[in-house]
Every structure is written in structure tokens, then in C-alpha cells.
Nucleic acid binder design. Structure first.
Lengths: 195, 195
DNA sequence: CTCTAAACGCAAGTTACTTGCATTAGCAGT
DNA sequence: ACTGCTAATGCAAGTAACTTGCGTTTAGAG
């Protein structure tokens, strides 16, 4: 055996069940929306018992997060226009568009509503780690082009820009204004005092 | 009668019940934390039936929000030091301190987890309206002192600063670094390009 | 081909939340 | 004060969400 003590079983039935459940969950999310998703429905559609889902994912929120994770990755490509300002505006615009869809909205709110159990914590860590490393490239490239000081913190900078979008989606529940990305980027680049 | 059709009954029993329930809820939040609060416990401690709470508040989250609303107001005073930078840093510091307490943390997460029912929507609107009008004064005063351009949008500006704090509390679940307020304020005031 | 244990199905149980109905108690008008 | 009206509450039964113990299946190692 390769691993002493535990024998994970990634291929075979587990993988089949996982895919079936995630596909069923995505289907239901697309048709009924985030509030219309129940674990019972998802299990029935996946041809799997309800308790299987609860055992693997723990809560409804964790299931939603896992199902929407893959989708989110590919819907948020990292632009590379050669200009820091354009890169940032493009990135924030696609993020705003995603967060305005039912799926993106559901993903953000599920991530916010999920608890601190191990499954949710790991999903959170995984998502933000890959997201930060991807979006951080925009900043790193700008530093290499000489557009930003060497000491610029990629993660801190990106968070200052994306946080207001998430804030409106999750906390104040306001629609995202189309020119919000541009305002955010220009304000941060120029500083407040500039006219 | 003053209002045709409906007769509100603000004084008397309703008010007594409301106070008793909110006090019981706050007590339980302080002792058991946000996850330890159940509607059954709160109702028992308030000497009120469980269904009364569900009828008045609808959900556990709405009850938590309502109970923590008053507390939040007085814990976030608006500083007036005469300097924009100092005002902002002081404000963000007190906000960060509040969000780091179990109560502040619970309040933010309850606000994020609450749904879109009328009760929750109204609580949200009320909270952010008063909060924005209060914190907006920092910006307005700075404009009047000539520290900022006349066209500066108070609400937009404050949101750019507070959003990263809420983001870490709700979405990434990271602790708030003590010098985060200073970094945020200085970055926004000077702009990214500055060294 | 056999053996083992992780993953699953099943069913019963617990907890959270909802709802219809009878009762209580503010408030208005006398 | 006294009386009638009705919103707000208590009570109890019901529904739905979630959990758990146990027997069964099945992927994978030897």
C-alpha cells in the first residue's frame, strides 16, 4: 500500500457519486436558484441517498460551494492587456458580471453563510489561495513593467479592489453599478486627493 | 384613531416582550457565542413562547441582527480629530476592534447569512443608511476643510475602506491585522503608484 | 480469487421551524 | 371606570431539515 493507515478510494464509485451529486446540484441551482435547492432534491436527482450527501459535505452550503467552485474558476480568467489599469478593470468587470448571475451570487453568499467546519474551511482556503495567486499575477506583471513599486503587496492590492464588490453583494445587497470597476481602479491608482 | 385600518400597539406588552427577548438573546450571545444561540433557549429565558419569536422575527439570524443593532450603534463613534487621515484610521480601528469581538463577528455574519425577507431587508437598509450618514461626515468635514475635492463621494469612499475589513471577517475568515487600518487609509489617500 | 474496510443505503431519531385555533390583554370609545 | 374589539400571545400538532447507528455493498490490495 502507498499510504499507511488510510486507504483513500478516489477512482470508482466515490468519484461517480461525487460527479452525479455535483451535476445534480448544479442543475437544480440553475433551474430553481439558490433558495430552491434542497439536499433531498439533489440526492433524488443524483440517484443517491440523502444521508450520503450529508456525510460527504456536511451541510447544504458546503455542497453548493463545492458544486460552484469549478465553475467559478473558469469564469474568471486573468486578463493580460499590457496595461495595469486595463487589466484591473477587465478583471473587476468579469468578477462583477459573475457576482451578478444567480450562480455567482449564490456562491458568494454560500461562502459567507458556511460555518467553520473542516470541510468549509478547506474549501475557503483552497478557493482564496488559487484566486489570490491568479489575480496576483496582474500586480506582479505591473511591477515587472515598472508600473508599480517593487514593494507593492499583490494580495492586499487585489483585496482592496474586490472587497467592495463582495461587500455590496453580501452585506448591503445592492446591485453592482456597471462603472463601479472603473471608479474603484481609478480611485485606487490615483489616490483620493487627486481631482 | 390616528391611522386608518391598522392599530399598532407599541407600548405595553409588545414592548415588554420585545425587550425581554432582545435582552435574553444578548445574554446568550455573550455567554454562549453566536453558534450556541438557539431560539428555544432565548424564548425560555425571556419567559416567552418560541412561536412568538418566530412570528416576530422570522428567523434566528433576524433576531441576532435586531439584538446586536443597538449595541453596534454606540460602539462605533465618529471621531473628529481635525485630520482626515487620523479620523479614518481611528474609525477603521474601532470598526476592526468591534468586528474582532464575538458580538461584532456574529453581527456581521448574521447580516451576511440573513435572507431577503422583509424583516431582514429593512434591518439591513436601516443599519447601512444610518451608518453611511454617520461615517460620511468624516468625508464631508474633510471636503469643507479643503482636504478633499468637492466631488468626492462620501459613501463610495468609506465603502472602499470598510469593505476589506468585512471581507476578511466574512469571506476569507482571517484575523484582522492591527496595522491594516493604517495601510488601507494610506494606500487610498496616496494612491497605488506612490512609493 | 479472497479479504478488508471505506462508502453507501436504510430507517429511526432529534432538532429546527411552521401553522391553526383558543385565549389574553392593550387601547378606543363611552 | 366599564366594555367591546382585535393584535399579540400561548398552546399543540405538524412539516421539513438534519443526524446517527447498523447492516450491506463494492473498490482495491495481496
Amino acid at each position: 500500500m502507498t499510504e499507511p493507515g488510510s486507504r483513500p478510494r478516489p477512482g470508482g464509485r466515490s468519484a461517480r457519486v461525487r460527479r452525479a451529486v455535483l451535476d445534480a446540484t448544479l442543475d437544480l441551482l440553475h433551474t430553481h436558484g439558490m433558495d430552491g435547492l434542497t439536499v433531498a432534491d439533489a440526492s433524488a436527482r443524483a440517484g443517491v441517498h440523502e444521508s450520503t450527501i450529508y456525510r460527504r459535505w456536511g451541510t447544504r452550503e458546503n455542497l453548493m460551494i463545492d458544486a460552484l467552485l469549478e465553475e467559478a474558476e473558469e469564469l474568471l480568467p486573468i486578463p493580460d492587456t499590457g496595461s495595469l489599469r486595463d487589466d484591473l478593470i477587465a478583471y473587476l468587470t468579469s468578477l462583477a458580471a459573475y457576482l451578478s448571475t444567480p450562480q455567482g451570487n449564490a456562491f458568494d453568499r454560500a461562502l459567507a453563510a458556511a460555518g467553520d467546519d473542516p470541510a468549509a474551511s478547506q474549501a475557503r482556503r483552497q478557493y482564496w489561495t488559487t484566486r489570490h495567486s491568479l489575480s496576483g499575477e496582474i500586480i506582479t506583471r505591473a511591477i515587472n513593467r515598472g508600473e508599480l513599486p517593487d514593494a507593492t503587496d499583490p494580495r492586499f492590492t487585489v483585496e482592496m479592489l474586490v472587497a467592495p464588490l463582495h461587500f455590496k453583494v453580501i452585506l448591503s445587497r445592492e446591485p453592482l453599478d456597471p462603472d463601479l470597476p472603473t471608479r474603484l481602479v481609478d480611485t485606487l491608482l490615483r489616490g483620493l486627493a487627486a481631482t
